[in-house]
């Protein structure tokens, strides 16, 4: 089973469960409060997932290492390498 199918199954399962509770499809005569809580649930989940993603990505962008040192070191080594290679007879 591919990830795509797994996700389709998962999502449809959740959707069905949600519909059953919020529209009382099976006539389970659930208390009114259940339906009131379930009904806007997908929106809440979506919004909180969005917030969470934004926060994580924002945090990671802010703390992403800028490798200034590595860039400098590389520049020095490039110089050294070019010189050494010229001595060894490389024609660029």
């Amino acid at each position: 089973m591919t990830k795509l199918l797994e996700w389709l199954f998962g999502v449809s399962f959740v959707l069905v469960a949600w519909a059953v509770v919020s529209f009382d499809l099976l006539d389970l005569s659930l208390p009114q409060t259940y339906r009131e809580v379930a009904w806007p649930m997908p929106l809440y989940l979506l919004v909180s997932f969005g917030c969470y993603s934004l926060a994580t990505v924002g945090y990671r962008v802010a703390t992403f290492n800028d490798c200034e040192e590595a860039a400098k070191e590389l520049q020095e080594q490039i110089k050294e390498a070019k010189e050494d290679l010229r001595k060894k007879g490389l024609k660029m």
């Binding site: 962008v61 992403f64 290492n65 800028d66 490798c67 200034e68 590595a70 860039a71």
Partner: peptide
């Protein structure tokens, strides 16, 4: 200690 050099904000994002 991993990281990148030479990426702008857009690219990082």
């Amino acid at each position: 200690n991993g990281g990148v050099y030479g990426w702008d904000l857009r690219r990082k994002l």
